[in-house]
Simulated scan of single mutants.
Amino acid sequence: MKVALGQFAVSSDVDVNIATCRTLIRQAQARGADLLVLPEGVLARDIADPDMVLKAAQPLDGPFIEALLPETCNGPVVMLCIHVPVPDHAKVSNVLVVLRDGAVVAQYRKLHLYDAFSVQESRHVEPGDSVPPLLEIAGFKVGLMTCYDLRFPELARRLALDGADVLVAPSAWLRGPLKEDHWDLVTRARALDNTVYLVAADECGPRNIGKSIVVDPLGVPVVQAAEGPALLFAELTAERLAQARASLPVLQNRRFVRPELSGRT
């Protein structure tokens, strides 16, 4: 499977972000990508306005997603995150949306909200309440995660035990002391812990670190961006996956039961 990661700084202008996403989809298609992963929260971003997630939120049949659907009719599967209004509620959901063949084919509401390092995502966002099903893309089974989910090994392990070969994580990883080290550590660890490929596309710009990355099933970075806008490509192979799992059979050697979602969410 050929994957592409589109790293960019999200604008406060929705139309600008639509244009950026369209361009990245077309570039990924031109290079023969099977999957394009974009960052978290790509509708709109304004550092000076923490309420932007509420103001910019759109339903899945809103103009943002509708503008991108035609681009996927003959292009790659596209994964990105947007904020979606919760009916009859003052909050929104942080939803990973999967676009394929001109339609929304899957969605995952972020389970773990970023209430850490003096940030409180839960002030505006409702957490999800279910583990997402796997998708099949180019012969690989793909599990869905979002940003802060990477810090919780239970979800990655659950998806791997469900059969995932690849974990995908659109992200908006905030800058801060040691945060780049944390990013490098958790992306590599989640891949190595579960002998899966990890594909994490991160936002760049003044707020986030960038450093989008693909990690192979033995924890080796395949490709990684720097801090600026980028479109990366990587080849994921069944041979590398099989080699990793034969030499490091952690999923077979484990002694703990399959993680289940807590009722706390």
Rank of each mutant, 00 (worst) to 15 (best):
Ala56Ile: 08
Ile25Glu: 00
Ala30Gly: 14
Gly62Arg: 03
Leu36Glu: 01
Val14Phe: 05
Val16Glu: 15
Asp15Leu: 03
Thr20Gln: 09
Ala19Tyr: 04
Arg31Phe: 01
Gly41Ser: 08
Val16Lys: 15
Asp13Asn: 12
Ala30Cys: 00
Cys21Lys: 05
Pro39Asp: 02
Asp51Lys: 03
Ile18Met: 10
Leu43Tyr: 04
Ala48Pro: 00
Ala33Ile: 01
Leu36Trp: 04
Leu43Gln: 10
Leu54Pro: 00
Gln29Asp: 10
Ala30Leu: 06
Leu35Pro: 04
Cys21Ala: 15
Cys21Trp: 01
Ala48Ile: 02
Ala56Asp: 15
Ala28Arg: 04
Ala44Met: 07
Asp49Leu: 06
Asp13Gly: 01
Val42Pro: 00
Thr20Gly: 02
Ala44Val: 02
Asp49Phe: 07
Asp13Thr: 09
Thr20Ala: 06
Leu43Pro: 00
Pro59Val: 09
Arg22Gln: 15
Pro59Gly: 14
Ala28Val: 02
Thr23Tyr: 05
Pro50Arg: 14
Leu43Phe: 03
Asn17Ile: 02
Gly32Trp: 09
Asn17Pro: 08
Pro39Phe: 05
Ala28Ile: 05
Ala28Asn: 06
Cys21Glu: 05
Arg31Thr: 00
Pro63His: 11
Arg31Ile: 00
Val37Cys: 10
Arg22Phe: 04
Asp13Ser: 04
Val14Pro: 02
Ala44Ile: 02
Ala30Trp: 06
Leu38Met: 15
Met52Leu: 13
Asp51Pro: 00
Gln29Thr: 14
Pro63Phe: 07
Ala33Leu: 07
Ala30Asn: 13
Asp49Trp: 08
Ala48Gln: 14
Ala19Asn: 11
Leu36Val: 09
Ala19Pro: 06
Ala57Glu: 12
Ile47Val: 11
Val53Gln: 11
Val53Tyr: 08
Ala56Val: 12
Arg45His: 09
Gly62Glu: 06
Asn17Leu: 08
Gln27Met: 13
Val37His: 06
Ala44Asn: 01
Arg31Glu: 09
Ala48Leu: 14
Gln29Asn: 06
Arg26Leu: 11
Leu36His: 02
Asp61Ala: 11
Ala48Met: 07
Pro59Asn: 11
Ala30Gln: 12
Gly41Phe: 06
Ala56Phe: 10
Asp13Lys: 03
Asp51Cys: 00
Asp34Ala: 10
Ile47Phe: 10
Ala28Asp: 06
Gln29Gly: 09
Pro50His: 11
Ala33Ser: 07
Asp51His: 03
Arg26Pro: 01
Gln29Val: 02
Pro59Ala: 05
Ile25Gln: 01
Gln29Trp: 01
Pro63Glu: 12
Asp61Lys: 08
Leu36Asn: 01
Val16Asp: 15
Leu54Arg: 05
Arg26Trp: 05
Ile47His: 11
